[in-house]
Design a protein around this nucleic acid. Sequence first.
DNA 1: GTTATAACATACCGATCGGTACAGTATTAT
DNA 2: ATAATACTGTACCGATCGGTATGTTATAAC
Lengths: 193, 193
Amino acid sequence: MARQREFNVDKALDAAMQIFWEKGFEATSLSDLTSRMGIQRPSMYSAFGDKKELFEAALRKYTTSHSSNIRAKLQNRLSVKEGFRTFFEGIVADGYSDINNRGCFCINTMVELAPHDEKFEILTREHQMYLSAIFHEAIERGLQAGELKTDINAKALAQTLVVSLIGLTVMMKSRPERTFVDHSVEVILSLIK
Amino acid sequence: MARQREFNVDKALDAAMQIFWEKGFEATSLSDLTSRMGIQRPSMYSAFGDKKELFEAALRKYTTSHSSNIRAKLQNRLSVKEGFRTFFEGIVADGYSDINNRGCFCINTMVELAPHDEKFEILTREHQMYLSAIFHEAIERGLQAGELKTDINAKALAQTLVVSLIGLTVMMKSRPERTFVDHSVEVILSLIK
DNA sequence: GTTATAACATACCGATCGGTACAGTATTAT
DNA sequence: ATAATACTGTACCGATCGGTATGTTATAAC
């Protein structure tokens, strides 16, 4: 009954996600957004609401995709241990290769917005809980297959791995020497036995 | 030969540190700063330079104080293990009690500025290296006193504890359930044996 | 007391911020 | 064809941004 949208909403949201991920909420301006999304302001406002709503939509898109990526990475391995090793070593490799050093969008948001906005406190917490559940699941799989025989409670181990993942991801932002993070990864992985 | 300063530079810097710590670099305005520092803009500019130089001075003040606090906390204990336990449990307790949830100023800066400003990449990295050295020192003390007999390389263990500390501090920003972090702390501390 | 100097307070700068009013245009139901 | 509707582009809004010019005031050297 009216004119149809000329841009692809999902592609525009993806572009917004990229720039918010790279620069954070405050440092990203509406001009940054509209130029990268390839649309005008009124289009952005009508499709997504204000800047914060757009940010939230971008973060939700990120966490959804991030979760399923991690689940896939841990499931595609025959060995659970090997899955975790490849995953953690990938975090380090990505940290050195990404010029923009974006890290994890959710972790960035946890630091920038969670303390000042309850919505993002909840959203980021729930994502970490979800990652913990994915890790827990992988560990249980290893236990039932007889690959793992840890004396540590599986759930506690999963939670510790989430904490370690956060620490490693944030540490990469300062581009530490390789040995530092390589050693850390080895010690963290040694928990999984 | 000229008029003397009416404000205390160190107190003003401390006030700047508090607000940068709480709100970050971008979200803190010059009006926020001058009102909290109790001085006018030209005084701020003449004493500290521009906003970023003030931020850097505030961060340096923080890291210096932070390092010596941590060293003191780890040294004031008879047992090295107990020192680490008290320290990590304190991080959790502080995370729940601090209404503003400021976390660690250096970690916040690592996330917000290190990827876009080499000066802060270096500054934050060096602080983490320094913390690692403090941890390493404590571990060596435990080893030489016969309290610790870890099979893990002492330096690697220290580095892992820094990564864990970062992860825990950031995790607290999302105010997770107590069991989550309590379990994590237990597993982390179990590395120190 | 005079003069040089630097900190003080006010008031302002251009630029940019997030957000929107409005006019023009394309699409669909009638 | 016409009317209703919703998207597009331009141009603008007041507010605030980081930063500074300027005139006044206090101090120290002489």
